[in-house]
Amino acid sequence: MQPHQILRNTVKAHLLEQIQKGELKVGKTINLAALSRKIGVSVTPIREALSQLEQARIIKAVPNRGFVVSTLTKKEAKNLYDTIAQLEVMALENSIFSEEDVRSLRLQQLKLQQSHTFMTRLKVRFQFHHLLVHKCTNTVLLQILEDLKARLLFYEQGFGQDASFYENVDNQNEAIVRAIEEDNLPTAALILKMNWMVVLEYIERQMSTNIAAS
Results as ranks from 00 to 15, higher is better:
residue 1 M to A: 15
residue 4 H to F: 14
residue 10 T to V: 11
residue 14 H to E: 12
residue 15 L to I: 15
residue 15 L to K: 07
residue 17 E to P: 00
residue 17 E to F: 05
residue 18 Q to S: 12
residue 23 E to S: 11
residue 24 L to S: 08
residue 27 G to V: 00
residue 31 N to A: 06
residue 38 K to D: 14
residue 39 I to C: 09
residue 40 G to R: 12
residue 45 P to V: 06
residue 45 P to Y: 03
residue 45 P to M: 07
residue 47 R to C: 03
residue 50 L to K: 02
residue 53 L to M: 13
residue 56 A to Y: 11
residue 57 R to K: 10
residue 59 I to A: 05
residue 60 K to P: 00
residue 61 A to N: 14
residue 62 V to F: 12
residue 63 P to A: 09
residue 64 N to C: 08
residue 71 T to Q: 13
residue 72 L to V: 04
residue 72 L to K: 04
residue 74 K to I: 02
residue 77 A to M: 04
residue 79 N to K: 11
residue 80 L to E: 01
residue 82 D to G: 05
residue 82 D to C: 05
residue 83 T to P: 01
residue 83 T to C: 03
residue 84 I to D: 01
residue 84 I to A: 03
residue 86 Q to R: 12
residue 87 L to E: 10
residue 87 L to K: 13
residue 93 E to L: 14
residue 93 E to R: 14
residue 94 N to P: 14
residue 96 I to V: 15
residue 96 I to W: 10
residue 100 E to Y: 10
residue 101 D to G: 04
residue 103 R to P: 03
residue 103 R to Q: 11
residue 105 L to I: 04
residue 107 L to V: 05
residue 108 Q to W: 00
residue 109 Q to N: 06
residue 113 Q to F: 09
residue 114 Q to L: 13
residue 118 F to K: 02
residue 118 F to D: 02
residue 118 F to M: 05
residue 120 T to D: 15
residue 121 R to M: 06
residue 125 R to L: 08
residue 127 Q to S: 10
residue 129 H to P: 01
residue 131 L to C: 10
residue 135 K to W: 01
residue 139 T to K: 11
residue 139 T to S: 11
residue 140 V to R: 13
residue 142 L to G: 05
residue 145 L to S: 10
residue 149 K to E: 15
residue 150 A to N: 03
residue 152 L to V: 05
residue 153 L to A: 15
residue 154 F to M: 03
residue 160 G to F: 01
residue 161 Q to N: 13
residue 164 S to I: 11
residue 166 Y to A: 00
residue 168 N to H: 09
residue 168 N to R: 12
residue 171 N to Q: 15
residue 175 A to K: 03
residue 176 I to P: 06
residue 180 I to C: 09
residue 181 E to L: 14
residue 181 E to W: 03
residue 187 T to H: 09
residue 190 L to E: 12
residue 192 L to H: 02
residue 197 M to I: 08
residue 199 V to R: 02
residue 201 E to I: 01
residue 205 R to C: 02
residue 209 T to F: 00
residue 210 N to L: 06
residue 214 S to G: 14
